[in-house]
Design a protein around this nucleic acid. Structure first.
Length: 213
DNA sequence: TTTCGGATTCACT
DNA sequence: GTGAATCCGAAAT
């Protein structure tokens, strides 16, 4: 295990977003209670995938960011230390997994990176169960899908990726610059500046990216 | 206390 | 391509 250090997340949000591509998001599930399980170390089932698509949401002047209207109980993690999680519920049924990322300090704007897609790796059979036995090509290509596949919900908001035993990001292998594409974020409507900001980053030609264009 | 709409997905046409 | 599902946070009443 080789977790990304706190300093990785303590940079401008779009910089962190781009740098997260290719890294490995890891989720450790508790073992089901098997006879004699208490005799062994709590290793747990390991699920993981490489991050292939992300979006940055940052600053007081980003109308698409949950933090744009100031701190509330929901978005409080975005105002906290970099390297923590921000998980929220939307559309009455979906969980979105974000990583808090912004420069450290008293007057720096809050920000977070939405993880939109993974290329699934370890624990695929378990992810498939979580996803209702849907085919592998729609296992983790979408923010709500990957949260479901990795069993991520609100209980994992505001936890520290640098120390939490059951969710973290490993250094992995970032793609070459030429393999990275960027463009406007998905589902952002209204405010013109927010709409056109090229803060969605993905690995070019990767089949797990949530949508074309 | 009510209303509104959302960083989405799925089933169906 | 279209509409439904379904809850909660935030703003308005």
């Amino acid at each position: 295990m080789n977790r990304l250090p706190r300093s990785f997340y303590a940079r401008p949000t779009p910089v962190v977003a781009r740098a997260l591509l290719g890294r490995r998001l890891v989720r450790i599930l508790k073992h089901s209670a098997a006879p004699g399980a208490h005799l062994h170390p709590p290793l747990g089932q390991r699920l993981s995938g490489r991050i292939v698509e992300v979006e940055a949401y940052a600053g007081a002047d980003d109308a698409a960011s949950h933090a744009c209207r100031g701190r509330t109980p929901r978005n409080a993690p975005m105002f906290g230390p970099p390297g923590h999680t921000y998980v929220y519920f939307i559309y009455g049924m979906h969980w979105m997994f974000n990583i808090v990322a912004h420069q450290d300090g008293p007057d720096t704007p809050p920000g977070a990176v939405l993880v939109r897609a993974l290329a699934p790796d370890e624990g695929r059979p378990i992810m498939r169960e979580h996803r209702g036995d849907r085919p592998d090509n729609i296992l983790t290509n979408g923010p709500a899908r990957l949260a479901q596949a990795l069993a991520i919900d609100g209980s994992l908001t505001a936890v520290d990726l640098c120390t939490h035993p059951r969710i973290f990001v490993e250094a992995g292998a970032p793609p070459p610059d030429g393999a990275i594409a960027c463009g406007p974020r998905v589902g952002v409507v209204g405010d013109q500046r927010a709409r056109v900001r090229p803060w969605r980053f993905w690995i070019r030609d990767n089949s797990y990216v949530s949508r074309k264009t």
